[in-house]
Write a protein that binds this DNA or RNA. Structure first.
Lengths: 172, 172
DNA sequence: GGGCTCCATGTGATTTTATAACATCGATGA
DNA sequence: TCATCGATGTTATAAAATCACATGGAGCCC
């Protein structure tokens, strides 16, 4: 965790959980976490896969597969859809990224390494996305599932709305 | 290798909330509710729209837009995608149906008339879908949104797993 | 080393899902 | 009457995802 002496040194205002932060840090630690976990688990963190994760980490918003593909192509990798989809599948399967169903888009995991059900907050005005933890077995859905005898294996929880920065702009 | 029965082929035990029920009732009351609400609100419940809702009501699973389109064509309506998408858009916009993002599919609302955030339980074995109520502002997501200052306008809550009927078959 | 298998990458082609753009037509009402 | 509007229809195209198959390198066994 970096604690910059001068908070104003950080000029980027990309929201992470809609809060200002040192964004270079995101990419760096995201890649490091993936490297570590891959070597632990014997997974092949190959160049395309690494690059795809890097691309996702660079933005706190959902990127379409074809947007990722464009950037992979620019980086010298293959130019056909399966190139992107396969890299993204790997990242999602191993918890380094998530798919946002509402957007048909992908985003780097904000809590890599921890076992979790993600929940997303998607700003419809600026497209930024924050990841929180969902607790699917608690709450109304969990109760309904228990009542019905339904075994939950995976959950999609996505909230659409307005992030604090955009709400503030709208007020002004 | 044995040839187990394909659970998706079983149409006799349509589950509603994964429970047996009088299915004719579903279609009938669904249509009636829509008629009533449309006349209340001055909405045009036209033949295509009515037929589309009927089609959705006939199944407790998600139907793709093109599946709906096929049946609309069979019923004598137009045969091009916008025909289905427009009817479905109307139904969704007015709360008579929902889109299931995980499946890129549509389903008739199980609680028409009541204002609610739907939550779905999707059986990955037989494709049946049950609708429950979500309480997005309670629970972890609501707390995260409040903490972040995010204003939730709409939520997608979808659980994938195994319905009681399929779980039982799997045990046997 | 030779050959083998496995897995990742690459490509072209296709399928599935969704929208754009524009014509027609009937109901409503000035 | 005729202007307007919303609904329906059509053709064409865009966007998202998958299929099928070829290549190529890493590790391994003999």
């Amino acid at each position: 965790m970096t604690t910059p002496e001068d908070p104003k040194a950080d000029t980027r205002t990309d929201p992470l959980g809609f809060a200002a932060h040192d964004h270079g840090h995101c990419v760096e630690t995201g890649i490091l976490a993936a490297e570590e976990r891959c070597s632990e688990k014997g997974l092949h963190f190959t160049p395309v896969r690494r690059k795809a994760l890097e691309i996702l980490l660079q933005e706190h918003r959902g990127l379409g597969a074809y947007e990722v593909l464009d950037r992979l192509r620019d980086a010298g990798f293959g130019s056909q859809p399966p190139v992107a989809y396969r890299a993204l599948d790997f990242l999602v399967a191993n918890g380094f990224a998530h798919k946002i169903e509402r957007l048909n888009a992908f985003i780097a995991c904000a809590h890599p390494g921890t076992r979790h059900s993600p929940a997303f907050m998607i700003c419809r005005l600026c497209d930024s996305v924050a990841e929180a933890h969902a607790t699917p077995t608690r709450g109304a859905l969990g109760q309904a599932a228990r009542d019905a005898g339904f075994r939950i294996e995976r959950t999609v929880v996505e909230a659409e709305g307005v992030c604090p920065a955009c709400a503030e702009k709208a007020d002004a």
